[in-house]
Computed example of a mutant assay.
Amino acid sequence: MKQFITAAVFTYPHEIAILKHILQDAGLQFYFENETMLTVVPMYAHALGGIKLKVHPNDLDTVNRILTAFDKDNNLKIV
């Protein structure tokens, strides 16, 4: 996991709920850094730098396409 890079940063756990399922369905390698901590103590969001979507470099282009499509072509928006 050391080679994983940050593709996006979110402030609150509810922002990643649907995105997590979309990424899993696509079969991508990813994880959300700080997800558990910010679920327990949401006020630490800014101190920890938010919830970071970490992806394998080989999957970065696909993840960026998914994020763009999710943000523009869907009634469910990333806040």
Rank of each mutant, 00 (worst) to 15 (best):
V9G: 00
Y31M: 02
I78N: 07
E15S: 07
H56L: 09
I78T: 04
Q24P: 01
D61C: 03
E15W: 05
F32V: 01
N58T: 13
E35D: 08
T11P: 02
M37E: 15
L23N: 08
A26I: 05
Y44L: 15
T11K: 14
V41I: 13
V9T: 05
D25S: 13
V63D: 09
D59V: 14
F30S: 08
P57D: 14
I16V: 15
A47T: 15
M37W: 05
V63F: 10
P42W: 01
G49K: 01
E35V: 00
T62R: 12
H46V: 14
Q24I: 08
T62H: 09
E33C: 00
A47V: 11
L38F: 08
G27R: 12
K20T: 15
E15G: 02
L53Y: 09
N75V: 07
I5P: 01
I5E: 03
V40I: 15
M43Q: 15
A7L: 08
I18S: 02
I22Q: 07
F32A: 00
L60T: 03
A69C: 06
H14Y: 06
N34S: 03
Y44A: 15
Y31L: 04
K20H: 15
Y12P: 04
T36S: 09
G50V: 07
I66E: 14
Q24K: 09
Y44H: 10
D73Y: 09
A7C: 11
V9P: 06
H56C: 05
P13C: 10
T36K: 04
N34V: 09
A47F: 13
I22K: 12
E33Y: 13
Y31E: 00
I5M: 00
Q29G: 11
D71T: 14
